[in-house]
Amino acid sequence: MGLIRDRRAWRRVRSNAMVVIMGAAVLLAVLPLVLILADLVIKGASSLNFEFFTSMPAPAGESGGGVAHAIVGTLIIVGIASAIGLPVGIAAGIYCAEYPASRITWVTRFMADVLNGTPSIVVGVFAWAWIVATQKHFSGLAGSAALAMLMIPMVLRTTEEMIRLVPNSLREAALALGYPRWRTSLTIVLRTTLPGIITGSLLAVARIAGETAPLLFTALGSQYMITNPNEPMAALPLTVFTYATGPFEEWHRFAWAAALVLILVVLALSIGARVALSRRAPNG
């Protein structure tokens, strides 16, 4: 009898120990996030001032200056990428959701998954071979093309999933009222899913805004304020990389500050998007 009781107690102890160990795993997993955010604020915040956002970089080794050129560059590169990537991704997503029986849907969905798993550096090499090598010069546009390509499969997936949640009765009601198919899709289905699609789009923008690898040999980076997308351009992630791996203390300080700006933008976009979605669809 005592043996059985001991064994039962032992099993209970072991079970509780496992629960505690796994709870500790949660703390350990959250730790890097806390550390990274804390370090960014500690080392980056002091360099954030008006000059940082509005001035051009000082000559190497000197103090002062800012990263206005990189902020403008990122806005332009990401803006063009979104202007290409979002419409194509959303349209392809609508196609996959509205014509599920089509063979194109199967192929597209499969290829989008492949593209989603493709390392961004490989897409960068592709954009280089396609645009930079043929034009014979680096350009922000080539960077935008690479980022757009990374964006399309993400947007496609969320759009398709959102549209699939629309009840068929809604479609049937519109069609029964005499709406043609295209108007049903655009004004009924798309309208209903708009918040979800906007969320997906914001998440995609947030992800590509921080991408560095595909810009290394497409947009290349620049020390000047460039607004013509057909020229080599600076971008915030590139600036973080160059300054972090450079030799000057001043550069390192700037790298932290630029990284802090980058992460604030990215986190604001992704937290905002997720909160907006969870408010719409509580079971999401």
């Binding site: 996030l33 370090d39 080392k43 921080g210 991408e211 973080v240 972090a244 790298a255 986190l267 937290i271």
Partner: peptide
């Protein structure tokens, strides 16, 4: 924890170096 996935790779690199 999902937010860790949103942090850009280059920021991890910066944190890694310093």
């Amino acid at each position: 924890i999902g937010l860790l996935a949103a942090i850009p790779s280059v920021v991890y690199g910066l944190w890694g170096i310093f």
